[in-house]
Each structure stands twice: as C-alpha cells, then as structure tokens.
Amino acid sequence: MNSDDDLTPEAAAAEVGRAAWQVRRRARWPGWMFLVFAAIDFAFFVIVGSGNRTVSDALIPVPALLAAAIFLIAARQPVVGQDAQRINKPIAIAGIVTAVAGLVIYQTVMPQHFTGWLLLLAALMVSPYFVGAWRWLHL
C-alpha cells in the first residue's frame, strides 16, 4: 500500500471494515484455546476419576503441561483482543473454583469409579471454559 495514494471515503470505509474484521478474527484465539482446554480437561477428569491408578499416575503431569502450553501459546499471539482482561480473568478464576469444588465433591460423595455422575461432574468442572469459548467465538 502506498501512503501517498488518494483515499476516497468509499475506499476508507472498505478498509476500516477489512482491517477490523481481520483483527477481530485474529483476536478470537482464546476462544479456540478455551475449547481445546475444556476438551482435554474433561477427558483428564473422567479418566483420572475412573479410578485406574496406573493411568491416573501417568496423567499427573497433564495439568502442568497444559498450563505451560497455554502460557507459551498466549505469549506468541500477535493480537490481544479488546475484551481479553474482562473475559479471561473471570473465566480462569471460575475454572479454578469449579475444579477445586469438583475435586472436593469427588473425594467426599462420589463413587471412586466411572459413573454417569462422573461425566456430569467433569462437564461442570470445565463448564467455565465452554462459557469462555462461547463468549470469544460469538464476539
């Protein structure tokens, strides 16, 4: 693009729309990240909660690896969305709260093997991330 080009109002309007669309689309990456995080976390909770000790022990590093991966992915993103602070922080806090509450419920009142309740509990534990994904991908 040449900075000395004349810019008609019509061309300006079109360029405003193009640039805004590109940036908004690029800024939605936390939505996809939340979706992947929710899927992996859900599988993790279900597998670990099913009570197979060998598998559970093998999966212990998963949450730490996931957190590290999220940090690295986030640090490499070239666009940070306008609503990043407003959306991500409450979602992260809610995710921690539901995870801790879910673990307490699992340890106190749940059977220590696979049941339908385990699926429901795991879904509730990752529900904040689905909310986060929905909010980003519908902006």
Partner: peptide, 19 residues
Amino acid sequence: HAPVRLSIMAALANADRID
C-alpha cells in the same frame, strides 16, 4: 485519513494491543 494510518487505526481500534 491516510491509507496506511487509517488501516493502523482501524486495526488498533479493534484490539487491546497488536504486535
């Protein structure tokens, strides 16, 4: 209202920050 600066402003107006 200059081609490059308009694109820059339109982009920045839709993000918290851009690389």
